[in-house]
């Protein structure tokens, strides 16, 4: 590959092409999955249990061998230039496991060394502080709680300052307050230029943090887009309003409201909104039609489906009522 081609390709942190994994028992964990993770992005990889997320991450981490397909990592062939790629990749695995002989500080020093980096004590101290492990830095890892161990996994993945960090369920078992601080830290890391690929079951967090998303279902990719595009395309929007008087069936059947598919929701009515070719919602038209039929409302709100609704629909798990 020429330098120019490599510079162009490096715009993607990861390019997964036709990745397939069939386990010896015949289970097809990944089936022809292709998507790209832009460099510098905060990327959510979502899917229900058994969708293939962990298999995909394990292939990136060199813990599982792919059956077919290719992955380019920062412009290089991941499977042919493993050592180069591994030095620039940090992975937080889903399973928590630590050597019982060492303390968190030892774990970070050893991990740094294994990646060929002499331990940077200031960075190790900062990681311990930011991940709220400083008070436990010299205890044996067996003495740490589940949440502390998971934060140590995050510190371990960051200690060699990778350019791409993969987080497989990093906040499972971490309480709300610590989770929020962990995400603040990850945002900072991301703003400093590190690409983050995240799997999580906390979809509201994924929606808040991530600028790109891919969704897997039974080993197949069902969506891979910038978060904004996906939500604009797939998240339905509604105008909910509460008229002054009681809503009668005849009003709901009024022809002026027909295209908004009105229905009773939470003591008011809900009108389905649509977007024009420029992506703008027809809120104004819906409002005018509602005022013409019911009179001025006493309460009103525009509601949009969230990532969880879209996720549930894409993964065939039904949706929630707005």
């Amino acid at each position: 590959m020429t330098l120019r081609a490599r510079l162009c390709a490096v715009m993607q942190a990861l390019e997964v092409s036709h990745l397939t994994k069939v386990y010896p028992n015949g289970k097809r964990a990944l089936d022809d999955v292709s998507f790209a993770v832009p460099e510098g992005s905060f990327f959510a990889l979502l899917g229900p249990n058994g969708a293939g997320k962990t298999t995909l991450i394990s292939i990136l981490a060199d813990v599982v061998r792919p059956t077919k397909g290719a992955v380019r990592f920062l412009g290089r062939d991941l499977f042919r230039e493993r050592a180069w790629c591994k030095k620039r990749l940090g992975v937080v695995p889903q399973e928590i496991a630590f050597d019982p002989f060492f303390t968190p500080r030892d774990v970070l020093r050893i991990t740094s060394g294994l990646y060929g980096v002499k331990p940077d004590e200031r960075w190790i101290e900062e990681l311990l502080q930011r991940l709220e492990l400083a008070a436990h830095a010299d205890k044996n890892t067996r003495m740490l709680s589940g949440g502390m161990r998971r934060r140590l996994l995050v510190a371990q993945a960051l200690v060699h300052r990778p350019r791409v960090v993969v987080l497989d369920e990093p906040t499972a078992g971490v309480d709300v307050e610590l989770r929020r601080r962990l995400w603040d830290f990850m945002r900072e890391i991301n703003r400093a230029g590190t690409t983050i690929l995240l799997t999580t079951h906390y979809l509201e967090e994924a929606e808040e943090l991530c600028d790109h998303v891919a969704i897997l279902r039974e080993g197949r990719l069902v969506a891979a887009e910038p978060m904004e595009t996906l939500m604009r395309k797939l998240a339905a929007a509604f105008l909910w309003l509460r008229p002054e008087g009681e809503v009668r069936d005849a009003q709901l059947a009024d022809a002026r409201l027909a295209r908004f598919r009105p229905r009773r929701v939470q003591g008011g009515i809900c009108l389905a909104l649509a977007r024009d070719e420029r992506g703008r919602l027809n809120v104004h038209e819906a409002y005018q039609a509602a005022v013409a039929v019911f009179g001025p409302p006493v309460e009103m709100e525009v509601r949009r489906e969230d990532l969880e609704d879209v996720f549930l629909r894409l993964t065939n798990r039904g949706g929630r009522t707005s």
Partner: peptide, 15 residues
């Protein structure tokens, strides 16, 4: 390492 699952850190490291 295998029983506890820590051998994956060696597989993941650039060694």
């Amino acid at each position: 390492g295998k029983v506890m699952g820590v051998h994956v850190y060696l597989l993941m490291a650039p060694l």
